[in-house]
Design a protein around this nucleic acid. Structure first.
Lengths: 257, 257
DNA sequence: CGGCACAACCTGTTATGACGAGTTCTATTA
DNA sequence: TAATAGAACTCGTCATAACAGGTTGTGCCG
């Protein structure tokens, strides 16, 4: 390569605003911005990322904050650093970080693949007819909705729309949903004992929104799952999962222990 | 099998000296001391660990250093923290953090278990007859030896004695050998393309040292493996693995891709 | 022209300091 | 006595600062 031209985008030109007064920590916001840039290709695999001091300036925070964000990404295996040179985007690899596929994927992936999630939204909403019925609520009562876009080996693989009782949802959003399995959080951190799940499956066509997220054509075949997970009698987690039809085989074991 | 009366050790009474001038970072030293205390039971599962300020004083370092050590352990899932309360030792769980079993274990663990390694020693030594022969060296030439004790779900499962060309060994010790798979480091960080491995297996009796590490009786049956891993023609990693006979079934697939 | 020393960058480590937020126990108050 | 306010602890976040150790380019010198 020749001269020093810009390495990559640093400024917050796009919708990656950092909010200093937000309740979510700066390093978390920055980590997610960087994760998005990696997953959407702004930072290509093997390319060098901006230096820590460049990011300091670009985001307007101190170096310790940048380092926290980068350190998190490094521990996930999304980037690697070389002392004296800089930070680089890691090449997606199978046989690295297993364990991240949740439930469905857990049973599905015989070996390990790299998986991450992008948080699309997380908010309290009024329960729709279907959701209310599943939780034994009245339509319009509050439930917590979390939408995520899941990646398998750096490719978008599914859109997950999950509903939780408000109390659980509030706590979930404080966790690291990008890399941790919701099942594991529920079991480990919250102490819920997941017992079983009911599910149903069908095939649908991608609408505009799903197609955009999953990078398929509109109308492409998707696998749609509806799954309610229980801890004993208590309904905990109701999910709609939209999997890319061309990327998944269906093989599943529902029992969990 | 002796009864342990101590509650929680904070001071560096035992052999857990922190060396300020050592080339290995303080937070790494501290992390490993804490890991040892967790794995050997000094800090029992679910028990509260000393507070960050207590550790600051006990180790004679700043809080940021303690936090780095604790943060690493937390990301591994060995401990968890509760704001306003403190740090606690996590309960060992299967179905959490897969992906850490290397090679042999990788193929062996159908689902996931929690695995860690304790670094027993890492140093340059003179190649023994056997090691030299495998690497195509003359006996007495320098090779790098790494000894580790591996845990599966908080129980010691195997002693690994690995030999590397000096250049590779020197780099390996700078990596996080406690949680990262050497195979993954070699492939991902170092760019070596592991192709195949030769191995042989036999059953032996535990000598005093092995029995002590593995927590078995002297004379207990062990599985002994000798494995040479190659990247193409180049021999990269020669290992002796001593597995507890009562804890392992042999089922293996050698191809890697 | 080739080699070597140095400056200019990078990340790694660590300290100090400050404030915020959550928990728990205590002491004051109604 | 019971409720409440607060003190005293905990971890979480973020800033500033300094130095070490590694890499890379530049420019001087032979």
């Amino acid at each position: 390569m020749s001269s020093r031209k810009q390495i990559a985008v640093v400024s917050k030109a796009s919708g990656d605003a950092i909010d200093a007064v937000s309740p979510v920590p700066l390093h978390t916001q920055i980590r997610e911005v960087l994760r998005r840039r990696i997953l959407d290709g702004s930072y290509a695999p093997h390319s060098q990322m901006p230096s820590e001091s460049q990011m300091m300036e670009a985001f307007g925070v101190s170096r310790i904050t940048i380092r926290q964000a980068l350190g998190d990404l490094q521990k996930e295996g999304l980037i690697f650093k070389v002392m004296g040179k800089g930070s680089f985007v890691a090449k997606p690899k199978a046989f690295q970080s297993l364990s991240r596929l949740q439930g469905f994927g857990e049973a599905m992936a015989p070996s390990g693949y790299e998986t991450y999630s992008l948080l699309l939204s997380a908010r309290q909403v009024e329960a729709s007819q279907v959701v209310a019925a599943r939780f034994g609520l009245r339509p319009g009562e509050a439930v917590f909705e979390i939408q995520r876009l899941r990646y398998l080996n750096r490719e978008p693989i599914s859109v997950d729309v999950s509903y939780f009782p408000p109390a659980i949802g509030e706590r979930l959003v404080q966790e690291d949903l990008a890399t941790r399995d919701i099942f594991v959080i529920l079991e480990n951190d919250f102490g819920h004992d997941l017992t079983h799940a009911d599910l149903q499956i069908e095939a649908i066509s991608a609408d505009e929104s799903l197609a955009r997220h999953l990078g398929t054509d509109e109308g492409a075949p998707l696998l749609r799952m509806e799954r309610m997970t229980y801890a004993g009698e208590q309904p905990l987690d109701f999910e709609f999962l939209y999997y890319r039809g061309d990327a998944f085989q269906y093989r599943l074991r529902i029992e969990r222990s």
